[in-house]
């Protein structure tokens, strides 16, 4: 009887899965609102960094949650909710990037490489105009560098470095082995290093690369 009254795993399990299960089975609006509130920030962060534009990131985050609700019946409680949600968000980002690429093929409006509006916004606790200007320039350089990374590398960087997913979790989301995630991360960091070279005055001039066998994927 006591075992039925107190189920220990239910006390410590992640609430996301239970909330999503309520959304799926009972169409519980409150549970869905709780999920949106909990995940809006990370999903906007992912979309913003994948697209390089905050306004588009916000739009895509809204689209992600709309699609999440529309696909609530395909959610399986045996899987992690976060993996389910990240995949939806990534697919929406990929779709948007494909649209941008198609538009770029037919017009001069390209990816947001020169779109300062809505791309970078900073918190109010700035240290002063000069320091803020420097920070803005650095942030813009990073944004540009990220956008120049191939998408498979950019995804790994955003999910690992900014959103804090483990390499194994990224592998689950993207559908590749953990080792491949790590090798893509190392290659992404190497490419970023080359792209951001002007920001690295303290780096030695001649960096010896790792031996080839250590970079084999």
């Amino acid at each position: 009887m006591a075992g039925k009254l107190f189920s220990w795993p239910s006390l410590f399990s992640c609430p996301d899965e239970r909330a999503m299960w309520r959304v799926r089975t009972e169409e519980d609006a409150q549970a869905f609102a709780e999920l949106v509130s909990r995940w809006q920030g990370p999903i906007q962060g992912l979309c913003t960094r994948m697209l390089g534009n905050r306004h588009r990131g916000e739009d895509l985050a809204q689209e992600t949650f709309a699609r999440l609700y529309a696909r609530r019946h395909s959610y399986e409680p045996t899987g992690k909710f976060s993996t389910f949600l990240w995949r939806i968000a990534l697919n929406i980002c990929y779709d948007e990037l494909r649209k941008i690429k198609r538009r770029r093929e037919f017009s001069l409006d390209g990816l947001d490489t020169d779109d300062g509006h809505g791309s970078l916004e900073f918190e109010a606790d700035d240290p002063g105009p000069d320091a803020r200007l420097v920070e803005n320039e650095r942030a813009e350089a990073v944004r540009q560098a990220l956008l120049q990374l191939p998408e498979p590398y950019r995804v790994v960087v955003v999910l690992r470095h900014y959103e804090g997913l483990k390499f194994r979790e990224i592998g689950d989301v993207v559908g590749i082995p953990e080792g491949t995630v790590k090798s893509r991360m190392s290659e992404a960091l190497s490419q970023l290093g080359r792209l951001l070279n002007p920001l690295r005055p303290e780096m030695p001039k001649n960096i010896a690369p790792l031996p080839p066998e250590s970079l084999l994927i």
Binding site: P42, G45, T48, R49, E123, H161, S190
Partner: peptide, 15 residues
């Protein structure tokens, strides 16, 4: 490179 990435400060509160 990792430190450079931090220059693009978080655009949204962390999960």
């Amino acid at each position: 490179s990792m430190r450079s990435l931090d220059h693009w400060s978080d655009v949204r509160p962390r999960r």
